[in-house]
Design a protein around this nucleic acid. Structure first.
Length: 206
DNA sequence: AACTCGGGGCA
DNA sequence: TGCCCAGAGTT
């Protein structure tokens, strides 16, 4: 278990919170933008955007069309722009511009669901929460970290299994590994650094 | 639980 | 070209 996490941490020695995000609010916005999109594209868009706009109050200086234009190259950009400005209004009105630190409050925000809430809790606040997306579900089950039949069960099992200090890093590295090596269709088992620790590799070998 | 959104990446 | 994607909202 821990050896797998150690290897993953060496393979992917950064987390999303170490990219363009300078505060929990920017992490929240970046995570909303990341839904069904690629990390590279989100980083492109947020690099300049987050230098100029750091708080909900900053974002509310833009009208909807302005924000749409700035994030235009990201999928679902119109929906996301609307959600982001709505969320900024809520943050200012109910939380004085701060990002709430509990799941219920986060999930009430426009554009924030279970996975985004968990990402913010674990990355920004070090609060126990694991965002299980399709990558985490697939890779964790293939490796044998868990044996779960769905996302919800994976989430429950990983919260018990994974040491607290690993939670945010476990998520990001499992996702990246799922995209780059352990993909859904044709996993590159021959070039996988984890093959000696992987149950899926053992089953499919030969 | 199924459906919709929707530009971009990649084979 | 066709298929899929670091999800969430609506019905």
């Amino acid at each position: 278990m821990n050896i797998i996490l150690e290897i993953l941490a060496q393979l992917y020695p950064y987390t999303r919170s170490e990219l363009n995000y300078e505060n929990p609010f920017q992490l929240l916005v970046g995570t909303i933008l990341a839904a069904q999109a690629t990390d590279r594209k989100v980083n492109e868009v947020t690099k300049d955007l987050f230098k100029e706009y750091r708080t909900p109050q900053d974002f509310l200086k833009m009208d909807l069309q302005t924000l749409e234009q700035k994030i235009k190259s990201i999928n679902l950009y119109k929906t996301k722009a609307k959600h982001i400005l709505s969320t900024c209004e809520t943050l200012v009105r109910k939380y004085g511009g701060a990002v709430p630190q509990n799941r219920e409050a986060l999930e009430e925000l426009d554009g924030v669901g279970r996975k985004t809430a968990n990402v913010v809790l674990s990355y920004a606040f070090d609060i126990p929460a694991i965002a299980v997306d399709t990558h985490v579900f697939r890779v964790a089950n293939r490796l044998g970290i868990v044996q779960a039949k769905n996302v919800q069960e994976t989430e429950r099992m990983m919260e018990k299994l994974i040491p607290r200090e690993w939670w945010s890093r476990a998520h990001s590295s499992l996702v990246l590994h799922g995209r780059r090596v352990c993909d859904a269709r044709k996993p590159k088992c021959d070039e996988c650094a984890l093959k000696e620790h992987c149950e899926y590799e053992r089953k499919t070998e030969g």
